[in-house]
Design a binder for these strands. Structure first.
Lengths: 331, 331
DNA sequence: ATGAAAGCGCTAACAC
DNA sequence: GTGTTAGCGCTTTCAT
C-alpha cells in the first residue's frame, strides 16, 4: 500500500535530477544514452508511471480525456458509437469518459458540466433538443464539440455526424412502392426527434415522387417504444381498408410491429430503419435500412481530434451512408 | 476563448481570499453568510467551475474517476453492465472511463495502465484469463478492483460479480429433459471461457441427475460466433440419430443455430443462455435463461464504492440470479 | 470568520 | 547534456 513513486523518487534512485527523468519519460532527444538507461532502470524498478493529473495541470497541456454523452449507453446503437470513438481515442492516446443523459436536458447539462470540470479535451454528444443551451461558447471556452446522430441546435455552429436518414427512408419506401404496394402506412415515435422527422420526410418524398397522395390515416406518430408501437400496428390491422405495407422509423417500433403481427398471425410487407440480426429468420419479410454505427463513432472522433489538434475549417455535417437490404436477400 | 476562471479570479472579484472561495465551493460551515453569498455571486458571474484535476492533485483526494475494462463495449451485454456502473458512479459523484480489451491480455494491460496513470479511484474489469498478471498489488497500490462476469485468476483475491451460470444451465437442460427429450445436444464456444465452462458443467449435472449418460458426440465445443455455431448445428442435423433438443451456451451461438434450422426448414427444442427479444416470434420454441445485466453492473459498482470508501471485509463472490423462460410463456 | 504560505507531481524557462 | 526554479489550481496547516 506504499504511495506511488514520483519522478522525484526515480531521480533519487538514478542519481539524476527530476528534469532528466522528465526528459526520459517524455522521450526528449537530448539525453545521454547512459543516463537514459540508468533512469529507465530506476523507472522499471520502482514501477513508476507518470501522473497524468499532474502533467495536465500545466497550461497548454490537455488532459488526454474526451467525453461522450449519449441517451443511454445500454442501447446498442449508442454503445456501438462509443466503441468507434474509443477506438480512435486510443489511437490518439486519449481515454474516453462516458455518461448517459437519459434524453433529459437537465441530466445532459449536469454531465457536460462534470466533463468540463475534468478538463476534457473535447466532447462528443448525442444531443437532446436543448443541448445548444449548455454548449455555449462561454461554457466551452474553446473545447471542441461534435454532435452525433442529431445536429445540435441551429445548424452551422457545430460539426455533426448523422445518418443519411432521408435517403434511407426514401429508398425503403420506394422499394415497397415498386413492389406494387399503394397503401403504405408509417409508424414513428416522438415527432420531436430529428431522426424520426427526417425519416418521415423521406417517406413522404417517396410517396410524392410516385404520385401518391399521403393518407393521414396511415401516418401514425408518437408511438415510442415497442409497447406503443405494438398498439399502433394493431390499429392499422383494425382498419377497414388495411395497408399492405408498413414503414417503421426504428427497430424498437419494428419489434412492436412484429409482435402485433405475430399475435394476430398475420403478415405484411414491413420496412424498417436499423438492422435486425434475426430478420432473415422471421416469418415477416423485411426491408431494412442498415448502417455502420461503429464507423459513425469513428468519424465523429476523427473530426473531434481534428479540432483538438487545431485543424480548422467551417463546421461540417458528415453524412454516414445507409444500405438497403431487400427481403429476398435476407431470407 | 478566454481561459477558464480560477478561484483566484473569483476571490479578486468578491474581494476575499482564495481560501474563502475554497470554503464556499466545498460547502464548509464556518463562513459568514454575507461573504458566502458575495462569493457565490462572483462564482456565478464568472461561470467558475472547480478544476477537478487540480483538486485531486493533493494527496488523499481521490480523482472521482473509475475505470471499466470490457471485451468490447459494442456488445450489448457489456454496455448494459457499463450502464449500471455509470448509474451508481453518478450517485457517488464519480465519472466512468471505459475501454475495450478486445479480450487480448496485451490490450488489457495497456488500458489498465492508462487508467492507473489517470489515478482512477477504482476499477471494474471483465477479465481476460491473464488479468491477474496485470493486477498485482504493486501495480494497484491499494486501488480496489471488482471483477464482473468472470472471476480474476485464483479465487479469493478479488471481489467478483458473476451470473448463476451453473444453475441456469442446469434448469434449462432439466426443463428439456422433463419434456421427454433424451438426446439433448450442447454447443459451446471457447472452452477456455469461464462462463462457457460453468454452463457446460450445469448441462452435465442436469444429465447426470436425470440418470442419463452424456454422449460425447452430442457435445460440441469450440464453436464461437454465429458462423461457427451455424456449422455446428448443421453437424448435429446431419447425424444419423439426431438430437431432439439442443442447449447452447450463449446468444451468439443461438443465432447461428437458428440460422441453420431456418436454412434446413427444420425445428427442434432449443434452449439458450441470454435473452432474445424476438424469441416469442420465432418459429423455433426457445427456453431461455435470462438475467439483468444492468443490475450486474450496479452490484459491481456498489461493491467497488464500498472498497473505495474503505469498507472492508473479505473478497466476496456476488451471484446474480438468473430466470428461466419457458417457450409456452413467450409464444 | 478569514487569510498567508506551503506543496501536491509535473513541465517549461532558463541557466550552466 | 543536465540541473534549478517557478508555477499550474487547488487544499491544508497554522496564524490572526
Amino acid at each position: 500500500m506504499s504511495s506511488r513513486p514520483t519522478m522525484h523518487d526515480v531521480a533519487r534512485l538514478a542519481g539524476v535530477s527530476i528534469k532528466t527523468v522528465s526528459r526520459v519519460v517524455n522521450q526528449e532527444p537530448r539525453v545521454d544514452p547512459d543516463t537514459r538507461s540508468r533512469v529507465q532502470e530506476a523507472i522499471d524498478e520502482l514501477g513508476f508511471r507518470r501522473n497524468e493529473q499532474a502533467r495536465s495541470l500545466r497550461p497548454g497541456q490537455s488532459t488526454a480525456l474526451i467525453g461522450l454523452v449519449t441517451g443511454d449507453l445500454s442501447n446498442p446503437f449508442y454503445s456501438s458509437i462509443a466503441r468507434g470513438i474509443e477506438e480512435v481515442a486510443h489511437e490518439h492516446g486519449h481515454l474516453l469518459l462516458t455518461a448517459s443523459s437519459e434524453e433529459q436536458p437537465g441530466r445532459e447539462r449536469q454531465v457536460i458540466g462534470a466533463f468540463l470540470q475534468h478538463n476534457v479535451a473535447g466532447l462528443v454528444v448525442v444531443p437532446t433538443p436543448q443541448a445548444h443551451l449548455q454548449l455555449t461558447p462561454e461554457a466551452l471556452r474553446g473545447i471542441p464539440v461534435v454532435a452525433v446522430d442529431r445536429p445540435i441546435g441551429p445548424t452551422g455552429t457545430f460539426d455533426s455526424v448523422v445518418l443519411n436518414n432521408r435517403v434511407g427512408a426514401h429508398a425503403a419506401v420506394t422499394h415497397l412502392l415498386r413492389d406494387g404496394h399503394t397503401r403504405v402506412a408509417m409508424i414513428d415515435g416522438d415527432p420531436a426527434v430529428y431522426t424520426g422527422r427526417e425519416r418521415t420526410a423521406g417517406y413522404l418524398e417517396a410517396l410524392a415522387e410516385a404520385g401518391l397522395a399521403s393518407d393521414p390515416a396511415l401516418i401514425l406518430q408518437g408511438y415510442h417504444g415497442d409497447r406503443q408501437a405494438e398498439a399502433a400496428m394493431h390499429l392499422l390491422l383494425d382498419m377497414a381498408t388495411r395497408p399492405t405495407a408498413v414503414f417503421v422509423t426504428n427497430n424498437r417500433i419494428a419489434l412492436g410491429a412484429l409482435k402485433a403481427l405475430h399475435a394476430r398471425r398475420r403478415s405484411l410487407a414491413l420496412a424498417s430503419f436499423d438492422d435486425f440480426e434475426l430478420a432473415g429468420i422471421l416469418p415477416t419479410p423485411m426491408t431494412l435500412v442498415s448502417y455502420d454505427a461503429v464507423e459513425m463513432g469513428r468519424q465523429a472522433a476523427r473530426r473531434l481530434f481534428g479540432r483538438i489538434e487545431r485543424r480548422g475549417g467551417a463546421p461540417a455535417d458528415i453524412i454516414i451512408p445507409v444500405k438497403l437490404h431487400l427481403p429476398e436477400e435476407t431470407n
